[in-house]
């Protein structure tokens, strides 16, 4: 039984929009608060790839309080359209979703998920996918609660150390 971003004890209104480079420091700060590890170079690279190039099919969205002016962001979601890998038709992939721990259970994760799905729909994408670790009940429960189910692919791996 875990605390999940979908648990809406009190839903709050949020402003969701695309993240430009002006959000870099705030995203690094949010991620650092969640993971305990600042990764400025990693996020700079993500911004360069997902906030400035091919933005017609790459989406880096952030959630802010409606009255926020350069204030803290409450959450983020990042995804893109990928096609023809593993025999797949083009589909939307979500590869990052985070909500600040103090802002969870307020519907922010759901609002971000809904927003990126709307972006995918608007460019004709009809399927959205993600990948989650089995030992990550927080995100597993969140995506399940949003209606996601196991897809047609199974991920394989093999140790190269044996």
């Amino acid at each position: 039984m875990s605390e999940t971003p979908d648990d809406m004890d009190v839903a709050v209104a949020v402003k969701i929009g695309r993240a430009g480079f002006e959000y870099l420091d705030r995203v690094v700060d949010l991620d650092s608060q969640i993971t305990g590890q600042p990764k400025p170079e990693y996020w700079k690279d993500v911004f360069e790839r997902y906030a400035s190039r091919h933005v017609e099919e790459r989406f880096f969205l952030v959630a802010e309080a409606p009255d926020s002016k350069d204030g803290d962001i409450l959450g983020l979601i990042v995804g893109e359209v990928r096609g023809f890998e593993f025999g797949s038709k083009p589909c939307g992939w979500i590869f990052a979703v985070s909500v600040h721990p103090d802002s969870r259970q307020r519907g922010i994760g759901e609002a971000l998920f809904t927003a990126i799905c709307d972006e995918f729909r608007q460019i004709g994408i009809v399927k959205v996918r993600t990948m989650v670790q089995r030992e990550d009940p927080l995100h597993m429960s969140f995506f399940r609660s949003e209606g996601m189910v196991a897809g047609p692919y199974i991920q394989f791996e093999m140790s190269l150390e044996d």
Binding site: T4, P137, M140, S141, R144, S145, G147, A150
Partner: peptide, 22 residues
């Protein structure tokens, strides 16, 4: 078994009710 447990562990009663409603 690990896959089954991860699946069962990620689905809450609230999620089931949402799926039934949908």
């Amino acid at each position: 078994n690990d896959m089954a447990l991860a699946t069962y562990g990620s689905i809450t009663i609230a999620t089931l009710l949402k799926q039934v409603d949908r």
